[in-house]
Amino acid sequence: MFAVQFRRDWLCLMRSRDEAVNPLVFLFLATTLFAIAFGGDPRQLAELAPAIVWALVLLANLLSLEALFRRDLEDGTLEQLLLLAEPPFAAVLGKVAVQWCVSGAAMAVLAPVAALLLNLPAAALPALMLGLLLGTPALSLIGAVGAALTVGLRGGGVLLALLLLPLHLPVLVFGVSAVLDTMAGVGAAAQFYWLAAISAAALTLAPFAATAALRISVEQS
């Protein structure tokens, strides 16, 4: 079920490429905007770089989450999915996995480029990448619960941000502090463990919560 859903969503995504690259475009546009608007001492910018990159990755992820279930709700696929005899959380996980590939894994790979625009020292790049790889699954998984709750609601985008930003705060904090600690020459193992732990907990709980949320949303629409 997971594989089937993954393949289907992946194909859909590849057919509308602009949707797949939108989060990355947002990341680079916003980074450039920050760098130009700041315009000051590049060393100061380097200190802000981890916070800027992490916050922008979080926002980019949020932007793509809004569409996670929308089309499936509109064409009725979602209803079918919930009616199947097979447990729907595997399919939900498949959808989240595709979303994560585009706005989690791809971000982790390309965020160092954005960070270089912000003058982040090269020595801190591995910490940024590792933190993003460990932390973005939690963003996508917890985000899926919020997306499932708000799918089909008017003004869902702002509502989604309001629901998710408080829940995403720990990932942001540990992610940024891991990079900062690495820059300061202190080990950041504890933060990576925390990010991994949050993602693991989200992996076990969020698919069930998202499925329950989808049932609520589908029943009322």
């Binding site: 609601l153 008017r154 009322q220």
Partner: peptide, 15 residues
């Protein structure tokens, strides 16, 4: 944001 009272209750419960 959720018009149906019952759905709103359960959605808020989950949140």
């Amino acid at each position: 944001a959720i018009p149906s009272r019952e759905a709103a209750g359960r959605a808020c419960a989950l949140l």
